[in-house]
Design a binder for these strands. Structure first.
Lengths: 179, 179
DNA sequence: CCCCACTTGGTAGTCACTATCGCTGCGGTA
DNA sequence: TACCGCAGCGATAGTGACTACCAAGTGGGG
């Protein structure tokens, strides 16, 4: 509820042009309550937590393929799922995240949570620290590529298909030959 | 000068535990002067600008190889150069950047500057928007992998060789076969 | 009816950062 | 030497995010 008011105001008056007090007033609560539910102003946009979703998609991919292909597939499928429903709220949040430097930075940093989720999704395949390191490297590469596609997608104002953009970007980074 | 005092204090008392006033007092200037030279507290650690260095290394690699290999080579060489000299100041800054969430986030976001530098380093090879997009995707993937190596390196407290770590991580993400 | 946990609100403070102003040293000019 | 323009520094007073600390309401179970 608070988050909905926040994203609406951020979209209308800009992130920096909107104070937490404004959000609180719009939501009809005190600023204290906002901070109780969202530890920082940035979390009003960034509250994500779809790590488990990606992790289970990873676990569902066949173990024979190279890591980046498995992770890439999971990310493309997730993007397709997320953009399938006409979720204006999600789109508004993504646009804010990409266009606001502070939010973009924190979103990039949050990738390490997704990386951990991905490594966890691999289960027994990445137990020793060295394998985990290699899996983390692959995951970070895939997520960075996805972020690049996200930026491009936001620049195109969501007119192009996000999943296709991610596929293209993954192919450019990792090669499109079936290795 | 101011930056040296800042990094020293941040290392000793922590980034959040040190105020800009503390830095100013240690450097013998007023807080105003600090903000005149460094627009934000974060810039006291993050003032980087080695984009041109990477760009010219990219331009120096043979155009026949795949993008990620050329970029990866440039990054490994840059890391080798940077860690060759026993630059305690650089090491302290890197450690701060990796271990402080706010700094790590901004450092990750700054990658888009390096990405632009890399694409620029490609010159004629990435003129049309589509080629630039593919190059950006490849660059972002390589930089993310490098960042993963950097995190691991900081965890090992700089005992392992950074260039070797980056090489290993690149191989894990992109495959070590000569394509 | 009371007690308890839980949620909310108020107050006052810290700190990053900004806007605006006045001061001071310093080289060039007459 | 006296003057002028200018660039860098400092002080003051703000704004806004965020954090204690404490008070008050509210609902459910004894």
């Amino acid at each position: 509820m608070i988050q909905a008011h926040a994203v609406r105001l951020f979209g209308r008056r800009g992130y920096d042009g909107t104070t937490v007090n404004d959000v609180a007033a719009a939501a009809g609560v005190s600023p204290m309550t906002v901070y109780r539910h969202f530890p920082t102003k940035e979390d009003l946009v960034l509250a994500d937590q779809n790590g488990p979703l990606v992790a289970e998609r990873i676990a569902a991919t066949p173990a024979g393929q190279p890591l980046v292909r498995r992770i890439g597939t999971a990310l493309v499928e997730s993007a397709r799922t997320l953009t399938a429903g006409d979720d204006r709220f999600l789109l508004a949040r993504l646009r804010l995240m990409i266009s606001t430097p502070a939010l973009r930075a924190r979103h990039l940093d949050n990738h390490h949570l997704l990386q951990q989720a991905i490594v966890d999704g691999l289960g027994d395949e990445a137990t020793d620290p060295d394998a985990a390191f290699r899996a983390t490297a692959a995951a970070s590469a895939c997520l960075a590529v996805m972020h690049t596609a996200l930026v491009r997608w936001a620049q195109d104002d969501g007119r192009t298909d996000l999943a296709d953009l991610i596929t293209t970007a993954l192919a450019a980074a990792f090669g499109d030959d079936p290795r």
